[in-house]
């Protein structure tokens, strides 16, 4: 609105520009505050050690992939693959189990719905790290200890409440009329879901999958407790850093940050909305 306001007096003009300048200043401060640590981490992780230890070189000019390579060889490469596998297992299980529940919440009225939904909402805030230690005891019995499936299953219970709430909100966003029209014109309810609702919900569900991926990818406590050899990336790095050089730590930060940048780049808009839905 203020853009279109007709500025009449000198005072108004000055006030308007002061406001714009303060606004711009604050935005720049916020952006720099968040972005600078990312940028500096990437630069320092790749910096030549000689330059890093030179107090007068703030922004390095000479770079090397040596430390990142070293970390990858130490096991970060395998750990990254493990992380991806665990995240995919988590997405698979949590959607397989959570999508029907999300559909039920979005499309049906039934007795106990409100309390069940409230239960899911509450569960989302429950500290899931609690299950890690007892789960390990169970996993030893089941032969799931130190397996990626085991971690994936544990991550599924962490992701499930979120997946249910997100998918229910996404499915509720697809008009029920579309589904009913498909049923009138010859499909069963399941057929209508797969032929009409699912394609329409796909962009949202993809974003939800990315969201789930990020949750699993970033989780460290459960993963660290449930694994000894087959570690995910954060668990691997958590375990490694205690006795390693600064450069290995920097390289660890670098490897973990890069996917985040990619995620925000491809799904930023959806992610803001997801967090809005699930955290409310």
């Amino acid at each position: 609105m203020s853009n279109e306001k007709i500025l009449t007096s000198r005072g108004d003009i000055i006030r308007y520009y002061t406001y714009r300048i303060i606004l711009a200043g604050l935005v720049i401060i916020a952006v720099v505050w968040i972005a600078l640590p990312f940028i500096m981490t990437i630069l320092y992780a790749l910096a030549d050690p000689a330059q890093y230890y030179d107090p007068h070189v703030i922004i390095p000019t000479s770079y090397t992939l040596k430390h990142v390579n070293q970390l990858l060889i130490l096991g970060a490469y395998q750990a990254t693959i493990n992380s991806v596998i665990v995240a995919l297992i988590t997405i698979g299980f949590s959607f397989l189990i959570g999508l029907p529940a999300g559909y039920a919440f979005a499309r049906y009225r039934f007795r106990g719905k409100d309390s069940l939904k409230l239960f899911i909402v509450a569960l989302r805030m429950f500290p899931m790290m609690v299950i890690a230690v007892p789960l390990l005891v169970l996993y030893f019995k089941l032969g799931l200890a130190d397996t990626l499936v085991g971690i994936g299953l544990a991550h599924t219970s962490m992701a499930l409440p979120f997946v249910i709430l997100i998918t229910s909100s996404i499915i509720a966003g697809v008009r029920v009329d579309y589904e009913e029209a498909a049923m009138v014109f010859g499909l069963s309810r399941i057929g209508a879901f797969f032929r009409v609702t699912l394609p329409l919900a796909l962009p949202g569900l993809t974003a939800a999958a990315i969201f789930t991926f990020i949750m699993s990818w970033n989780e460290v406590f459960i993963a660290a407790v449930l694994s000894f050899q087959n570690r995910t990336l954060p668990a691997f790095i958590l375990n490694l850093i205690a006795g390693s050089t600064d450069f290995i730590k920097f390289a660890g930060a670098f490897i973990m940050v890069i996917p985040a940048l990619i995620f925000v780049f491809i799904a930023g808009k959806y992610l803001v909305r997801m967090w809005g839905i699930t955290l409310k």
Partner: peptide
């Protein structure tokens, strides 16, 4: 762009955040 930048820390693990500030 500013919005995506501000939410960037949401996508990294707390271990990564700790290491980033270790670098800083």
């Amino acid at each position: 762009l500013a919005l995506y930048t501000v939410i960037l820390p949401l996508t990294i693990s707390d271990v990564a955040a700790g290491l980033i500030w270790y670098v800083m």
